[in-house]
């Protein structure tokens, strides 16, 4: 039954997101038969290095959703301090309280059942605009972002261009 409640909530969100216009991202299913596996496209936020990019990512929900958080992985290549080299996104709201893998400070907001696809993606967009180099998932990108902003930017712009070509 856990499946059914969570699945129903996801179905409602999908219908709502498709009905209204969302800012900053679009969302759909990878496979129409599987409500737990979403494909989202996140638009690079304006006035940042990521502007103009259309970054594809997979949002995979566990059967225990909404008790447990989904996992977000970028499929498009992306260079960012908080996204590891496999594309896995490390932001605090996708982690449960007590899961301190990434050295988050205690006060950072964690996964709560009340979060929606929209609130998750808004957090991701704000992470793109404002990296957190205290808990980098990609140490090289974090160092480059801090110490060599020009070459960091060059790498990001390359990812932006590639994401446009792949669209």
């Amino acid at each position: 039954m856990t499946e059914e409640r969570g699945a129903l909530l996801l179905r409602k969100q999908l219908a709502e997101l498709n009905k209204s216009c969302t800012e900053g991202f679009s969302a759909g299913l990878i496979d129409d038969e599987d409500i737990y596996r979403w494909e989202v496209v996140i638009y690079g936020p304006p006035d940042t290095n990521y502007e103009g990019g259309y970054f594809k990512a997979h949002l995979i929900f566990p059967k225990e959703y909404p008790d447990r958080p989904p996992k977000l992985t970028f499929v498009s290549e992306i260079w960012h301090p908080n996204i590891d080299k496999n594309g896995d996104v490390c932001i605090s709201i996708l982690h449960e309280p007590g899961d301190d893998n990434y050295g988050y400070e205690k006060a950072a907001e964690r996964w709560l059942p009340i979060h929606t696809v929209e609130t998750i993606l808004i957090s991701v967009i704000s992470m793109l605009a404002d990296p957190n180099d205290e808990s980098p998932a990609n140490v090289d990108a974090a160092k480059e972002w801090r110490d060599f902003p020009d070459s960091f930017k060059k790498k990001v712009v390359r990812c932006v261009r590639r994401s446009q070509e792949e669209l």
Partner: peptide
């Protein structure tokens, strides 16, 4: 300011 979408769903249920 809680997200109404999920809140209403938990409430209605």
């Amino acid at each position: 300011g809680y997200p109404t979408f999920t809140l209403e769903d938990f409430y209605e249920n």
